[in-house]
Design a protein around this nucleic acid. Sequence first.
DNA 1: ACGATGATGAAC
DNA 2: TTCATCATCGTA
Length: 199
Amino acid sequence: MGTVSKKFFQDKNIPRVARSLLGNVLMRRYRGETRAYIITDVEAYDGPRDKASHAYRGKTARNALMFGEAGRWYVYFVYGMYWMLNMVTGPKEYPAAILIRGAMAVRSPKFLGLGNPIAKWQSDCLSGPGRLTRALHIDKSFNGQCARPENGLWIEDWGIKIPPRAIRKVPRIGVSYAHEWAQKPYRFVVDPVVRERRG
DNA sequence: ACGATGATGAAC
DNA sequence: TTCATCATCGTA
Protein backbone atom coordinates (compact mmCIF):
# COMPACT_ATOMS: atom_id res chain seq x y z
CA MET A 1 0.00 0.00 0.00
CA GLY A 2 1.05 3.61 -0.40
CA THR A 3 3.24 5.31 -2.96
CA VAL A 4 5.29 2.94 -5.07
CA SER A 5 8.92 3.99 -4.70
CA LYS A 6 12.09 3.74 -6.69
CA LYS A 7 13.04 0.39 -5.19
CA PHE A 8 10.10 -1.34 -6.86
CA PHE A 9 11.41 -0.28 -10.26
CA GLN A 10 15.08 -1.20 -9.76
CA ASP A 11 14.56 -4.92 -10.37
CA LYS A 12 16.62 -6.08 -13.35
CA ASN A 13 13.82 -8.39 -14.53
CA ILE A 14 11.98 -5.73 -16.53
CA PRO A 15 9.11 -7.91 -17.83
CA ARG A 16 8.44 -8.95 -14.22
CA VAL A 17 8.29 -5.31 -13.10
CA ALA A 18 5.95 -4.53 -15.99
CA ARG A 19 3.65 -7.39 -15.05
CA SER A 20 3.60 -6.32 -11.40
CA LEU A 21 2.63 -2.82 -12.42
CA LEU A 22 -0.77 -4.08 -13.59
CA GLY A 23 -3.33 -3.29 -10.89
CA ASN A 24 -1.22 -0.51 -9.43
CA VAL A 25 -2.75 2.93 -9.58
CA LEU A 26 -1.48 5.84 -11.64
CA MET A 27 -2.25 9.05 -9.74
CA ARG A 28 -2.51 12.47 -11.38
CA ARG A 29 -2.97 15.81 -9.65
CA TYR A 30 -4.05 18.50 -12.10
CA ARG A 31 -5.53 21.92 -11.31
CA GLY A 32 -6.25 20.97 -7.71
CA GLU A 33 -7.97 17.67 -8.52
CA THR A 34 -6.49 14.23 -7.92
CA ARG A 35 -7.60 11.38 -10.10
CA ALA A 36 -6.75 7.69 -10.01
CA TYR A 37 -6.24 5.25 -12.89
CA ILE A 38 -5.77 1.51 -12.44
CA ILE A 39 -3.03 0.39 -14.82
CA THR A 40 -4.25 -2.29 -17.24
CA ASP A 41 -1.84 -2.30 -20.18
CA VAL A 42 1.97 -1.98 -20.21
CA GLU A 43 5.00 -2.83 -22.33
CA ALA A 44 8.56 -3.64 -21.23
CA TYR A 45 11.57 -2.19 -23.07
CA ASP A 46 14.39 -4.26 -21.78
CA GLY A 47 18.04 -3.34 -22.01
CA PRO A 48 20.66 -2.52 -24.66
CA ARG A 49 19.96 -5.63 -26.77
CA ASP A 50 16.24 -5.01 -27.20
CA LYS A 51 15.91 -3.95 -30.83
CA ALA A 52 12.53 -2.35 -30.15
CA SER A 53 13.99 -0.03 -27.52
CA HIS A 54 15.14 3.53 -28.02
CA ALA A 55 18.29 2.46 -26.17
CA TYR A 56 19.27 -0.17 -28.75
CA ARG A 57 21.56 2.20 -30.65
CA GLY A 58 23.19 3.59 -27.53
CA LYS A 59 22.72 6.66 -25.41
CA THR A 60 21.40 9.84 -27.05
CA ALA A 61 19.98 13.12 -25.79
CA ARG A 62 16.45 11.72 -25.96
CA ASN A 63 16.93 8.33 -24.33
CA ALA A 64 19.62 9.24 -21.74
CA LEU A 65 17.04 8.98 -18.95
CA MET A 66 16.60 5.28 -19.69
CA PHE A 67 20.21 4.77 -18.58
CA GLY A 68 19.66 6.69 -15.35
CA GLU A 69 18.01 5.90 -12.05
CA ALA A 70 14.73 4.02 -11.84
CA GLY A 71 11.55 5.69 -10.65
CA ARG A 72 11.63 8.68 -12.99
CA TRP A 73 9.30 9.38 -15.87
CA TYR A 74 10.57 9.12 -19.42
CA VAL A 75 8.21 11.08 -21.67
CA TYR A 76 8.83 11.48 -25.39
CA PHE A 77 7.01 12.76 -28.45
CA VAL A 78 6.02 10.57 -31.42
CA TYR A 79 4.22 10.88 -34.74
CA GLY A 80 4.13 14.65 -34.43
CA MET A 81 1.24 14.49 -31.98
CA TYR A 82 1.49 12.17 -29.02
CA TRP A 83 3.36 11.97 -25.75
CA MET A 84 4.38 8.52 -24.54
CA LEU A 85 4.55 7.95 -20.79
CA ASN A 86 7.22 5.55 -19.56
CA MET A 87 8.62 4.62 -16.17
CA VAL A 88 12.40 4.24 -16.05
CA THR A 89 13.26 0.83 -14.59
CA GLY A 90 16.18 -1.46 -13.82
CA PRO A 91 19.61 -0.87 -12.27
CA LYS A 92 21.53 2.29 -13.08
CA GLU A 93 23.22 2.16 -16.50
CA TYR A 94 20.88 -0.64 -17.61
CA PRO A 95 18.62 1.13 -20.11
CA ALA A 96 15.03 0.06 -19.61
CA ALA A 97 11.56 1.49 -19.32
CA ILE A 98 7.93 0.50 -19.13
CA LEU A 99 5.43 2.14 -21.46
CA ILE A 100 2.01 2.72 -19.91
CA ARG A 101 -0.52 1.99 -22.65
CA GLY A 102 -3.83 1.78 -20.83
CA ALA A 103 -5.66 2.34 -17.56
CA MET A 104 -9.11 2.46 -15.99
CA ALA A 105 -10.15 5.78 -14.54
CA VAL A 106 -11.65 5.41 -11.07
CA ARG A 107 -14.72 7.63 -11.09
CA SER A 108 -15.36 8.03 -7.44
CA PRO A 109 -12.46 9.20 -5.29
CA LYS A 110 -14.53 8.21 -2.25
CA PHE A 111 -13.41 4.65 -2.83
CA LEU A 112 -9.78 5.54 -2.24
CA GLY A 113 -8.13 2.92 -0.09
CA LEU A 114 -11.25 0.95 0.75
CA GLY A 115 -10.03 -2.17 -1.01
CA ASN A 116 -13.16 -2.65 -3.10
CA PRO A 117 -13.05 -5.39 -5.72
CA ILE A 118 -11.98 -4.00 -9.07
CA ALA A 119 -15.31 -4.84 -10.75
CA LYS A 120 -17.26 -2.67 -8.34
CA TRP A 121 -15.43 0.50 -9.22
CA GLN A 122 -17.30 2.59 -11.71
CA SER A 123 -14.67 3.39 -14.23
CA ASP A 124 -13.79 4.49 -17.71
CA CYS A 125 -11.21 2.75 -19.86
CA LEU A 126 -8.32 4.70 -21.34
CA SER A 127 -6.91 2.58 -24.12
CA GLY A 128 -3.79 3.63 -26.02
CA PRO A 129 -0.69 5.46 -24.82
CA GLY A 130 -1.46 8.64 -26.77
CA ARG A 131 -5.04 8.85 -25.54
CA LEU A 132 -3.91 8.23 -21.98
CA THR A 133 -1.40 11.09 -21.91
CA ARG A 134 -3.88 13.41 -23.61
CA ALA A 135 -6.55 12.62 -21.01
CA LEU A 136 -4.12 13.13 -18.13
CA HIS A 137 -2.52 16.30 -19.54
CA ILE A 138 0.90 14.70 -19.62
CA ASP A 139 3.59 16.31 -21.74
CA LYS A 140 7.34 16.79 -21.81
CA SER A 141 7.28 18.73 -18.55
CA PHE A 142 7.21 15.36 -16.76
CA ASN A 143 10.28 14.05 -18.55
CA GLY A 144 12.93 13.28 -15.94
CA GLN A 145 10.66 13.97 -12.97
CA CYS A 146 10.57 11.52 -10.08
CA ALA A 147 7.24 9.75 -9.69
CA ARG A 148 6.16 11.45 -6.46
CA PRO A 149 2.96 13.14 -5.31
CA GLU A 150 4.77 16.50 -5.13
CA ASN A 151 5.31 16.32 -8.88
CA GLY A 152 1.65 15.62 -9.64
CA LEU A 153 2.18 12.19 -11.21
CA TRP A 154 2.90 9.07 -9.21
CA ILE A 155 1.95 5.43 -8.67
CA GLU A 156 0.21 3.86 -5.68
CA ASP A 157 -0.25 0.28 -4.55
CA TRP A 158 -3.78 -0.26 -3.30
CA GLY A 159 -3.34 -3.98 -2.85
CA ILE A 160 -5.32 -4.78 -5.99
CA LYS A 161 -4.38 -8.28 -7.12
CA ILE A 162 -4.81 -9.17 -10.76
CA PRO A 163 -5.30 -12.95 -11.08
CA PRO A 164 -2.55 -14.45 -13.28
CA ARG A 165 -5.06 -15.92 -15.70
CA ALA A 166 -6.47 -12.44 -16.32
CA ILE A 167 -3.10 -11.29 -17.69
CA ARG A 168 -2.42 -11.71 -21.39
CA LYS A 169 1.23 -11.77 -22.51
CA VAL A 170 1.36 -10.58 -26.11
CA PRO A 171 3.83 -8.96 -28.53
CA ARG A 172 4.40 -5.21 -28.33
CA ILE A 173 2.63 -2.75 -30.62
CA GLY A 174 4.27 -0.75 -33.39
CA VAL A 175 7.71 -2.35 -33.25
CA SER A 176 7.74 -4.46 -36.41
CA TYR A 177 11.18 -3.04 -37.24
CA ALA A 178 12.61 -4.94 -34.25
CA HIS A 179 12.81 -8.30 -36.07
CA GLU A 180 12.92 -11.20 -33.58
CA TRP A 181 12.38 -8.81 -30.67
CA ALA A 182 9.04 -7.77 -32.13
CA GLN A 183 7.61 -11.20 -31.30
CA LYS A 184 8.64 -11.30 -27.66
CA PRO A 185 5.62 -11.21 -25.30
CA TYR A 186 6.66 -8.03 -23.53
CA ARG A 187 3.19 -6.48 -23.49
CA PHE A 188 1.02 -7.27 -20.49
CA VAL A 189 -2.71 -6.60 -20.67
CA VAL A 190 -5.49 -7.21 -18.18
CA ASP A 191 -8.05 -9.18 -20.14
CA PRO A 192 -11.28 -7.15 -19.99
CA VAL A 193 -13.55 -10.19 -19.99
CA VAL A 194 -11.74 -11.89 -17.15
CA ARG A 195 -11.58 -8.53 -15.39
CA GLU A 196 -15.40 -8.29 -15.46
CA ARG A 197 -15.97 -11.89 -14.41
CA ARG A 198 -13.52 -12.05 -11.56
CA GLY A 199 -13.67 -8.66 -9.96
C1' DA B 1 -5.95 2.28 -45.77
C1' DC B 2 -4.13 6.61 -45.00
C1' DG B 3 -3.06 11.39 -43.53
C1' DA B 4 -1.89 14.49 -39.69
C1' DT B 5 2.19 16.47 -37.79
C1' DG B 6 6.99 17.39 -35.80
C1' DA B 7 11.06 15.51 -33.22
C1' DT B 8 14.83 12.42 -33.80
C1' DG B 9 18.98 10.49 -35.53
C1' DA B 10 21.77 9.06 -39.24
C1' DA B 11 23.57 10.17 -43.59
C1' DC B 12 25.67 13.40 -46.42
C1' DT C 1 21.15 20.37 -43.93
C1' DT C 2 18.25 16.93 -45.72
C1' DC C 3 15.48 12.90 -45.16
C1' DA C 4 13.23 8.59 -43.70
C1' DT C 5 11.29 7.06 -39.77
C1' DC C 6 8.45 6.88 -35.88
C1' DA C 7 6.78 2.64 -28.77
C1' DT C 8 -0.20 6.70 -32.59
C1' DC C 9 -4.85 7.89 -33.58
C1' DG C 10 -9.04 9.29 -36.06
C1' DT C 11 -11.49 8.93 -40.12
C1' DA C 12 -12.69 6.24 -44.19
